[in-house]
């Protein structure tokens, strides 16, 4: 099952990337109190998702980038956000970047859930379901926060 292993690896890496990016945006917009606290909270969710996946990674083995096997998911491997942008428009674009990263994580969990069902791997299916549900909540927050930030950033901000 080399392809499932690759996707398990993708989930692990993209959760890590999303966690790091949430933390970078939290620090970069530390003066925006809700962004600071919520991004740190949501980064913790990503950590938890990786912890939940860890036993499965041990079981299937992790197919990371650069390793032999299938290379398509490598092209999906998104670069994280190392640094936050400035100002109200910058915040909006950073939130949108997080949204893109979180969408990759979400679709990865969906794909893994499909594979897990095919294999009747109840443990992996449950993990993919639970994690994917929380990823959707992360995306819902990003949607909500972008809707709030957009009008001021697009119309009034310098």
């Amino acid at each position: 099952m080399p392809h499932l292993a690759t996707y398990v690896g993708l989930a692990d890496h993209s959760e890590q990337t999303l966690a790091d990016s949430f933390r970078a945006i939290a620090e970069g917009h530390a003066h925006v109190a809700d962004v600071f606290h919520t991004c740190r909270l949501l980064a913790g969710w990503c950590d938890r998702h990786r912890e939940a996946l860890a036993p499965v990674v041990d079981r299937y083995g992790e197919q990371g980038p650069g390793q032999e096997g299938v290379d398509e998911p490598e092209r999906l491997h998104a670069a994280g956000l190392a640094q936050a942008r400035e100002g109200e428009v910058g915040l909006l674009r950073d939130l949108q970047d997080l949204h893109v990263l979180a969408s990759l994580v979400q679709s990865t969990w969906m794909v893994i859930a499909q594979g897990a069902q095919g294999l009747r791997d109840r443990e992996l299916f449950q993990i993919a379901q639970d994690n994917g549900t929380e990823t959707s909540r992360q995306i819902a927050w990003l949607d909500t926060r972008m809707k709030v930030a957009a009008p001021q950033a697009l119309i009034v901000a310098p």
Binding site: E88, K147, V148, Q152
Partner: peptide, 18 residues
């Protein structure tokens, strides 16, 4: 189009001058 702006956010916009 979005939830109304809460007080702390209004003061942040005032801080930025928007």
């Amino acid at each position: 189009w979005a939830p109304p702006t809460h007080a702390m956010q209004i003061f942040s916009y005032a801080e930025a001058g928007t």
